[in-house]
Amino acid sequence: MGILGNKSSLQCIFIILLIMLWQVLASVIDSPDLPSIINVYSALTFHYQKGELLYNLGITLYRVLFSFCLAMVLGIFMGILMAHRHRINVFSDTVLVVLLNIPALVTIMLAYIWFGLIETAAIFAVVLNKLPNVIVSIREGARVIDPKLTQMAKVYRLSRFTYYRFIYLPQIYPYILLAARNGLSLIWKIVLVVELLGRSDGVGFALHSLFQFFDIAGILAYTFCFIGIVFTIEFILFKPFEKLIQKGRKHV
């Protein structure tokens, strides 16, 4: 296979071209509003050596992962419940539509006003922003559970555990993955807003301080770091899960 036929090398080339274009543009324009990649890199090492970069990234990552897990677990549970219990669905459907349409900013403000400027309020606000999306996708998945496989499980008197582990859940894995992928990117953006509005640590807080000094290189340094982290999560968490889902479905 030639180099053009290889997808990942193509992607690499594209990224390198983008970086080169950026560097050229930055040196042509030569303004502090568009720092070059070298400026961003030195901002990165500066903040790293000060020690706050890793600390803030760690705090934000913890908030992202914690609220992500909480939203996923709750969302999967409620999504399945709503798909199979008609009454619950009728009642909670309206709430769901309301939650889906409340601006993230409003939930965050309300959470801070009601619970105070505390960690719980921050996590609560993030989870509440993400939860409806998870519920909606899981509910769609649980609605298309194949009744024929359920019948098979009944005839052969499979235990409840076996049924859920091997027949039910594998059918909604693709929807869980979808919700998780959409979720992670949404959640980390919301966490930043939450931190900006009412926390004194984390990437959002750091960005806020950098913004006050118009430190664009610093802002970009933080942003790229976090994008890097999300990429890593994609590779160590989602790719293996995707492989698991593809098992037996992509042969022929």
Partner: peptide, 26 residues
């Protein structure tokens, strides 16, 4: 004990042949 062979096979695509059979007889 019942056995049921359906019109469609109703095998689980994400399990191997052996796993499909052992599912009903662990």
């Amino acid at each position: 004990k019942l056995g049921y062979i359906f019109q469609e096979n109703r095998l689980l695509p994400w399990l191997t042949i052996q796993e499909n059979i052992l599912l009903v007889a662990p």
